[in-house]
Design a binder for these strands. Structure first.
Lengths: 213, 213
DNA sequence: TCTTGCGGATACACTTCTGTATCGAAACGT
DNA sequence: ACGTTTCGATACAGAAGTGTATCCGCAAGA
């Protein structure tokens, strides 16, 4: 359902505008505070447009979760691609790890709205049975994708992860969420240098190297 | 402000009932979906009672954040106390660590409502400047308390943490949040055995031991 | 160019929430 | 026991949102 490729361009464009508006409004007011009226208005429409595209707010949010998941996974894949392109073989472990950190650290600095939206969607999935399965699927896909990348990186520098996929990814994702939320809570912004340092330390914790230096 | 010790018992009781109601309502409908009317009604009052105790919903939520923080910290302290009481000196590292895991693992299995409430309050703090400082203070206090306990535990079994307080606590808290949320998303409940296994693995990751066995 | 139909706007009736103002009653000091 | 204070209920006016039903105009096809 709601596959933007299989509908008229006009309809797809309207839905895209509604989705973008929903991102903003949900980030600003929360999923509970987001209203059909608010989203439609933000998109430059009236409620009429909304209801002729989605049956309900729930319906739109399902669409949004799918979309957000796709974007996230694509971001990670792109970072991985960049890393693979830039990597020069034969580096020392530390240099290679530092390179990896540099390539992935921007994922640790999402804009405030993304942090809020992500948290809101997770809460929404927790509360709404009809959404949960889809949400979990998206998270799993992301976790799997990231883990593969991580494993490849480790193998290429003769290091290995201390724990299996599931725990590793939970540590990673939890750390990302916790870190970006605390940054905004604490400073009101994200300090890139601090994030590089944080990610480096995390890598030291979850990765085990056979040799040193 | 709103120190329950310095007000008449009746007032304190009413506020306590309102706070409890707020916990439930916010967990169920989210901070954005929680209304003065809903909270008052849940507590068995009308809005009149609410407004004669709090100036606004924001006002109550500030109180709630403080309260939730106190409860959390007390829980951790109690777990630490239990651990100290039950611990028999001279155990092997692995046995001692296993004991620690057993003592703290129940903190990894909060009821669904606590997971939701915690997430909602964090989001609320992110969005409301007037609340942020207090929220951060509460989190810092919790982190410090937990870290002290963790350090003492490590020292007593001749092990040490791989990273400093800040990163360690971010990993821990992030892992806790991520884990409980995913449990409820995935299974709809929390599996205690799985949590023990998860916590054991986490301990292996963040703790470094000098000897083995 | 005509017309057909879809997409978005408008109107309507209803519900829920807000904040204030007022009132009755329960608690408390003397 | 009595008056005072305080606390919680009720009433009111207004704001905002919901979903449906209806209408209109533009865009695409013959």
């Amino acid at each position: 359902m709601s596959d933007h490729a299989t509908m008229t361009p006009r309809r797809a464009a309207t839905r895209a505008r509604l989705l973008d508006a929903a991102r903003e409004v949900i980030a600003e007011r929360g999923a509970g505070g987001a209203t059909v009226e608010g989203i439609a208005e933000r998109a430059g429409f009236t409620r009429g447009a909304f209801y002729s595209n989605y049956a309900s707010l729930d319906d739109l949010i399902v669409d949004l979760i799918r979309d957000v998941g796709e974007v996230r996974l694509r971001d990670v894949r792109e970072a991985a691609g960049q890393f693979a392109l830039n990597r020069t073989p034969g580096l020392t472990i530390d240099t290679a790890l530092a390179g990896g950190v540099r390539e992935f650290v921007h994922l640790l600095q999402p804009p405030m709205n993304d942090v809020l939206l992500q948290a809101e969607l997770r809460l929404y999935a927790l509360r709404h049975d009809g959404v949960r399965a889809g949400y979990v699927a998206v998270v799993r896909e992301t976790m799997t994708g990231v883990y593969e990348i991580l494993e490849r990186l480790c193998a290429s520098v003769n290091a290995r992860l201390r724990t299996g996929p599931e725990i590793t990814m939970e540590i990673l994702l939890g750390f990302f969420d916790q870190g970006s939320a605390m940054s905004y809570l604490d400073l009101g912004r994200i300090d890139p240098d601090a994030q590089v340092a944080r990610l480096s330390q995390l890598v030291d914790v979850i990765i085990e190297t056979d040799q040193r230096g």
